[in-house]
Computed example of a mutant assay.
Amino acid sequence: MAVWPFSSQVSFNQGNQQVRGRFAPSPSGPLHFGSLVAAVGSYLHAKANNGLWFVRIEDIDTSRVDASAQGQILDALYAFGLHWDVDLQTQSQLQNGDRNCLKQTARLSRYQEVLDFLESKELIYGCACTRKEIKASGGLYQGTCRDKYLDLHNNPIRLKQTRPIYQFSDGIFGPQSCDPLMAQEDYIIKRRDGLFSYQLAVVVDDIDQGITHVVRGADIMPLTARQLSLYQTLEVDPPEFLHLPLAVTKPGHKLSKQNHAPAINSSNPQPELLKALSFLGYAQPSLSNKSLNLDSLAKASPQTILEWAVEHWSQTKINQQTEIII
């Protein structure tokens, strides 16, 4: 029987009294405005609560990685004044050249350790069903291979869904209900090509970094119930979740690297930084504050703008729309 792999992490989390947030970009291209909103929102939430803010590189899907993107992303964050933290809880997990950012591709042995634990609990199984077969049966996997005891090395691996989550509360959008069939689905946690799934990696990463609050885009909100159920399966308390509206060009068309959204301008960060704050519900600075009016803020350094934003952060002012056209 594999040993429960979260003893030290849970011990740390139980003694931790500090907010710990993170921004976790995929290095498939340079940062665009939608990514900037997520970065700024997660940074301000952490810092306004006297917390720490980490950056993690989610490069688990190596087929989508752009070799130059990681450096571009980290340089852009720095240019916008978004400086990330490192502490003893995460420092031991870093490697030389990581620029104090956890990288998923450096953590494959850790994911396998968790997978071995799930196997010891008989919570995973091999599946031979094709996408075409699943689509023909309605689009959601029906548990066809659950009791066939197929090989785990030559097939995709699915998690037995024993603790489905049907409802949860989001810090921005409030109570959320989930599709019951999706909540009950045995989903893939390791692909046929050997790549670990985003679902497994992101939960293990957040546990290991002691993340207390996940602030991210609303496009990932439908996956939250599935991740909450995995926390229960792993017997670890989950973080709180807050989802931010998506920046879209028209309904259903979010800004994304796949849609070739233009990169943010790191050489002149102030305009887009202020635009991101407006997107997050910030009104213009009070003109009664003679030391900081709108003109002076527009000409201020990114650090000064962020300091002002931290002081005036309020998640209740964020628009409760999943999409906002820009």
Score class of each variant (00 low, 15 high):
1 M>P: 11
6 F>M: 06
12 F>W: 14
29 G>E: 10
29 G>R: 09
31 L>S: 05
40 V>A: 01
41 G>C: 03
43 Y>C: 01
43 Y>G: 02
44 L>V: 04
47 K>Q: 12
56 R>W: 04
62 T>M: 04
64 R>C: 00
65 V>H: 01
65 V>Q: 02
67 A>S: 13
68 S>I: 02
69 A>I: 11
69 A>L: 11
73 I>G: 00
81 G>R: 04
83 H>I: 11
85 D>P: 13
86 V>Y: 10
88 L>N: 14
94 L>N: 14
99 R>W: 07
112 Q>M: 12
114 V>L: 09
114 V>F: 10
115 L>S: 10
117 F>C: 07
119 E>P: 01
119 E>F: 07
121 K>N: 06
125 Y>A: 06
128 A>R: 13
134 I>E: 12
140 L>D: 09
143 G>L: 14
143 G>I: 14
145 C>A: 14
146 R>D: 10
147 D>G: 09
149 Y>E: 13
152 L>C: 12
153 H>A: 15
163 R>T: 13
163 R>G: 04
167 Q>R: 15
168 F>L: 04
176 Q>I: 14
182 M>R: 11
189 I>K: 03
191 R>S: 02
196 F>T: 02
197 S>G: 12
200 L>V: 02
204 V>N: 00
206 D>K: 00
209 Q>F: 03
213 H>S: 09
220 I>R: 00
221 M>Q: 04
225 A>P: 05
225 A>C: 15
226 R>Y: 05
227 Q>H: 06
232 Q>W: 06
234 L>T: 03
236 V>M: 10
240 E>C: 04
240 E>M: 07
242 L>G: 08
247 A>Y: 03
247 A>W: 04
248 V>W: 00
248 V>F: 01
248 V>E: 01
251 P>N: 06
255 L>K: 03
258 Q>I: 03
261 A>Q: 07
263 A>S: 14
264 I>A: 08
265 N>Y: 03
266 S>E: 11
273 L>P: 02
275 K>Y: 01
280 L>W: 07
280 L>P: 04
286 S>D: 15
289 N>A: 13
298 A>W: 06
300 A>E: 07
301 S>R: 06
302 P>T: 01
303 Q>E: 10
308 W>L: 07
309 A>W: 10
309 A>Q: 06
309 A>R: 07
310 V>P: 00
311 E>R: 12
319 N>F: 08
320 Q>I: 12
324 I>Y: 05
